[in-house]
Structure formats: structure tokens, C-alpha cells
Design a binder for these strands. Structure first.
Length: 433
DNA sequence: TCTGGGGTCCTAGGACCC
DNA sequence: TCTGGGGTCCTAGGACCC
């Protein structure tokens, strides 16, 4: 058994909590946040969960329900959420010897150097600090492996009596089994819908059941990933801390359109826009890509004729040069575009990604050209950073039409945009008048 | 009228080579 | 009449995560 202790700090209903920070009147009231394009529900307050709104619920089916029961609805506001996330993560980084940011609202923490009996009060301090400095409520779970810390976190979140902290490494094997016996197999990190269904059919219903299932069986039906999860349930580490963020392998920018799009020109605009965004991202991370793919698809929820296709090309050398990328993307699009369909979504996928400084030169490339291109992109990126996104961009993306996504209920970018700072309401005392 | 977006890993099967 | 076997690489598809 390892001496290591993994912590998992997870923000409660993160997007909803971000919105509440800037509108405290929403506390204890049902709130939901919608996905891009106001498509479906991706975050729910506890009150909204209690009212039976499922994760991923299509917004249009619940519109009346939202109104009838006074549920507050927000479009997603990633500018705000990213910024709030950074604040939470920096507090966590100061609180533990090592943190691994796992997603926008979660981080694993290395608590191995801490004395076991200090854990509860230590976690409580972190939780309170984050709450009072950022306004975001977090739950913290700890355990001997990441998988156990995930379960502990779940308990901390679900069971009010824990006060948002649950330290699983404090329990002996027997007690641990009793805890695992009430965890549904589908609630284990790494066991998704399909596997959960399959496991239940095989009469493996709880985390404890899975823990005591033989390796060979797991390996046969759940592959090595499933075996890793099971081994972690037994308290042996299979998923260690990631010291460094692993190098990116692909980069995708895609969106559903606000309205269906039928003609090539409009789709070209969207593809150019996404290609240009993706190129920007590459440069920001000091990367280049040498494989580019473009895909388009119709709306699978409709009864219309369906079509989806993808086309990709390998470039002679890695690039992050917007004009080249946009041009290539349009070429690819033209290869797969068929008229007569109503398109709902397009996207650009970069792969074979490498670092700009170790990039291999194409056989017929001239050094001078590359330098000129890099200078130009650097200049444009700098201008866009200072003057605002999209100040300079490819002409083809200038028209913004039907494909623009919907975002009808977006809150302000309170923390990152001068024009959208929260308005300060000064309340005068009656006596002062 | 209206159903998100961005990632990773693993496996099976085909192509190809010797 | 007889028609190998093993290795590698690539891709598509399926599973998972948030």
C-alpha cells in the first residue's frame, strides 16, 4: 500500500457558481448554464438538479419548464469561466507542494508529504480560502490513488454532513469496502455508460464488486484502462501525477451553426474562421501542425438527407501561418462539399503537432520566407492582443452570417473586459438623506 | 425553429514488407 | 496439388473524460 495521498479539489457546479459570484441573488435558486449555441444544459445548480433537469438536456425542450419554475438560464461565458478558473488554480498551487490541473474546474493535489491527521483541517483551510477569495465553493476528496480521491470527492460533494471534505485514506480496508459497496459502478472515474451497463449485466453493481473482480476478466472485457481503474480501487497507483502537461497531439476548432447553412460560400467563411482561430492557438502555444483536416456535417437530429465527410492533407512541413492554413482548409472543404444539403456544423482538426523551434524545414522552403511569415504573424497577434480579438483577420472571415452561434443569455465578461465590469451600486443609508 | 466542444487512449483489421 | 508467418504501420471506430 502506498504512502502517497492524492487530493482532488473540484469546484461545485462550476459554471453556475461563476455566475452566482456576480449575482448573489441567485444563491439557493435554480440556475442552469447552456452549451455553445444555447444547445443543451451543461451545468446545473443543486436546486436545478433536484428539479429533475438532466445533464445534457436539450434547451428547447425545457424552455417552458425554465419559465414556469423561474429557473435562471445563462449562455456559456467561457471568457469569464477561464478567468475564474485561473484564480482558483493559483490558490490551489499555493496550497499544495504540487498540483496537476485536470480540467477547468478540477485539480489533483499531492498531499503525500502531509501528516495524515493534519489532512482534514488542511483541506478545510484550502476550501475556505478559495470560497472567501473567489466566491467559488469547492469540494475536496483525498485517497491513496486518483481513482479513490475521485470517489472521496464525490462523497464530499453529495453528503452534506462532510462539510465538503472527505478523507478516504483514513479508513482501514474493511471500512473502505463498506464505503465502496454503496458507490454505483457507473459513478467510478473511468467507467462510462457502456461499461456500466455491461458490468451490471454481469452482476457487478458497485465499486466494491469491481474491486474484487479478477484481473483476467477485466482485461478481457474492459481492456487495460479498465484494469488500471480496478487496480486503483484496490489502492495501488496506476495513474500517477503528471509532472508536465503532455504535449498536445491534436487541436480542434469546430462549432454548430446558429442556423442551417446550404451554400459553399457561407461554409467557407466558417471554415476560414475556425482555421484562423486554430492557427492562432497553435502560435500561442509555440506549435505547428503538419496535418490539417476539415469536416462538415448535416444535422443528425433532423430527418433531412444526411451527409458528413472529412478530408485531410499532410503538409510538407509544419506550419502555423494563417494564410497557408486558411487556403489549405478551403481547398479541403471544396473537396468534400456537396450542394443540396443543409449543413449544421463544420470544423478544422490539426494533428502531427510539433514545436515551432524544432520544426523541420520543407524541402523547397526558403529560410527567409519562414522568418517573414513568423514576423508577420507575431505582429498580427500582438495587435490583436492589444486592440481586441479579430482586429486584424483574414478578409474571408469578415462576413458573419447565419452560421454565427447563438448566445442569447450570456452574462458580462465581468473580470476581463473593461466595458463589462460589474456596475457598482452604492446604497445610501436612509439617515444620510 | 431549437440537441456542445475539445480532448485522450485502445483495439481490430487491413496493407505492406520480408 | 501445393499457397507461410511474423512484424510494423496506419486508420477507423469505440470507449472514456470534462
Amino acid at each position: 500500500m502506498s504512502d502517497e495521498i492524492f487530493g482532488l479539489a473540484d469546484c461545485n457546479n462550476f459554471y453556475v457558481s461563476c455566475e452566482r459570484v456576480f449575482d448573489p441573488s441567485l444563491e439557493e435558486r435554480p440556475v442552469v448554464v447552456l452549451s455553445n449555441n444555447d444547445g443543451c444544459v451543461i451545468a446545473r445548480s443543486n436546486e436545478a438538479k433536484a428539479m429533475g433537469i438532466p445533464m445534457g438536456a436539450p434547451a428547447f425542450k425545457y424552455r417552458e419548464y425554465f419559465q414556469k419554475y423561474g429557473i435562471t438560464v445563462f449562455s456559456s461565458n467561457y471568457t469569464l469561466y477561464d478567468n475564474m478558473s485561473e484564480r482558483v488554480m493559483s490558490i490551489l498551487a499555493d496550497s499544495a507542494p504540487f498540483i496537476e490541473v485536470y480540467s477547468i474546474d478540477e485539480a489533483f493535489l499531492d498531499f503525500s508529504s502531509l501528516k495524515r491527521f493534519h489532512m482534514p483541517s488542511f483541506c478545510r483551510d484550502i476550501r475556505e480560502k478559495i470560497r472567501s477569495w473567489t466566491g467559488i465553493p469547492v469540494s475536496i476528496g483525498t485517497g491513496r490513488t486518483k481513482t479513490l480521491a475521485k470517489i472521496a470527492n464525490r462523497i464530499a460533494k453529495k453528503d452534506k454532513s462532510t462539510g465538503g471534505i472527505f478523507n478516504m485514506e483514513r479508513y482501514c480496508e474493511n471500512d473502505l469496502d463498506m464505503i465502496l459497496a454503496v458507490i454505483d459502478v457507473g459513478d467510478i472515474w473511468g467507467i462510462g455508460k457502456k461499461y456500466a451497463q455491461f458490468l451490471r449485466k454481469s452482476n457487478i453493481n458497485t465499486a466494491k464488486d469491481l474491486k474484487y473482480t479478477p484481473d483476467e476478466w477485466i482485461l478481457k472485457y474492459l481492456t487495460v484502462e479498465g484494469l488500471r481503474t480496478t487496480t486503483e480501487l484496490r489502492g495501488r497507483i496506476c495513474i500517477p501525477f503528471r509532472e508536465k502537461r503532455p504535449a498536445r497531439k491534436q487541436l480542434v476548432v469546430s462549432r454548430s451553426f446558429g442556423k442551417d447553412v446550404t451554400d459553399l460560400e457561407e461554409i467557407s467563411e466558417s471554415v476560414s474562421e475556425f482555421a484562423s482561430r486554430a492557427a492562432e492557438k497553435l502560435r500561442k502555444e509555440g506549435l505547428t501542425a503538419s496535418s490539417i483536416a476539415v469536416f462538415i456535417q448535416t444535422n443528425p437530429f433532423r430527418n433531412d438527407p444526411q451527409y458528413h465527410n472529412i478530408s485531410s492533407i499532410k503538409l510538407p512541413a509544419g506550419t502555423s501561418y494563417t494564410p497557408e492554413i486558411v487556403q489549405t482548409a478551403i481547398l479541403l472543404l471544396k473537396k468534400i462539399f456537396r450542394s443540396g444539403y443543409s449543413y449544421k456544423k463544420s470544423g478544422v482538426i490539426f494533428s502531427e503537432i510539433g514545436k515551432t523551434d524544432t520544426r523541420q524545414m520543407g524541402l523547397f522552403e526558403k529560410n527567409k520566407n519562414i522568418d517573414r511569415h513568423q514576423d508577420l504573424m507575431r505582429t498580427i497577434d500582438t495587435i490583436n492582443t492589444e486592440m481586441g480579438k479579430n482586429y486584424i483577420r483574414p478578409a474571408i472571415t469578415l462576413n458573419r452570417h447565419r452560421w454565427e452561434m447563438k448566445s442569447s443569455f450570456r452574462s458580462s465578461r465581468y473580470t476581463t473586459n473593461w466595458d463589462e465590469l460589474p456596475s457598482v451600486r452604492i446604497c445610501h443609508d436612509e439617515n444620510e438623506k
